[in-house]
Amino acid sequence: MRSGGRALVSFEGGCRIEGLELLKNWDVWKQLLQGTLVTVELTVSLLAVGLVLGVLVALGQVYGPRPLAILCFGYERFFRAMPIVVLLVVVNYGLVFVANTYQWDWLRWPPFAVAVLVFGLHSSAYQSQIFRGAILAIKPGQLLAARALGMTRLQTMRYIVLPQALRLAIPGWSNEYSGVLKDTSFVFAIGVTELFRQGWQIAQRTREFFLIFITVALIYLMLTYLGTGLLELVERVWGVPGLAGQRREEHGRVV
């Protein structure tokens, strides 16, 4: 192959031009954007599932009667112990197996739905610890004050605990967002074609691995930047003096 310096230069040169040309190709972008859309949909859905379950698990851990609290801790430990890829494959093929064995067609889920379920459960275990920390940061005196007004336990959680815990959880939650966003690329294991998988296919076809994956990486960077930026905005707008969102300035004045 290396017949001479001239040939090598022209080969690389040709490559570079072809590579940049590739980015002017609408079909490539269409494929990447389709992948991006799947990644975003998956991330948003799994975070929503994880948020609801995570809050419930955290409440169960902190306020539940002993058996429920133990159950919630067991749930959280189990899902945090499972590698996400293993969990995806086991649940996906497990569902297929059960559906085939018992002829239960309602268990034949599209891979995307399986991905949302598995990722959602996995994320809820991590999110539960973010919320548990946030709940425990609330001074218990406020709960006494709420009960003293005649609020029920549920009202106290709804009107006192949750509004504060959710605000306090935003920085940790932003971490979870940027974490799962990138982990979603594991869903290729069950045949969901998201951003990374689309990039992989384009790269296989065009042999432009470096260029394509750099582009994919930049899209992930942008998504992370946009998402965490949005959460920072929520934190500031929804913040309350002395509680959350506006502490940066207070800390900044001291050190």
């Binding site: 001074k139 005196g141 406020q142 004050a145 009960r147 003293a148 007004l149 005649g150 002395g242 509680l243």
Partner: peptide, 20 residues
């Protein structure tokens, strides 16, 4: 007891206002 507590005002040493 929630009905009763409505009729008994309680003021705490450290105020315990709802911070949010």
């Amino acid at each position: 007891i929630n009905k009763i507590r409505q009729q008994i005002g309680f003021v705490f040493q450290d105020f315990n206002l709802f911070a949010h």
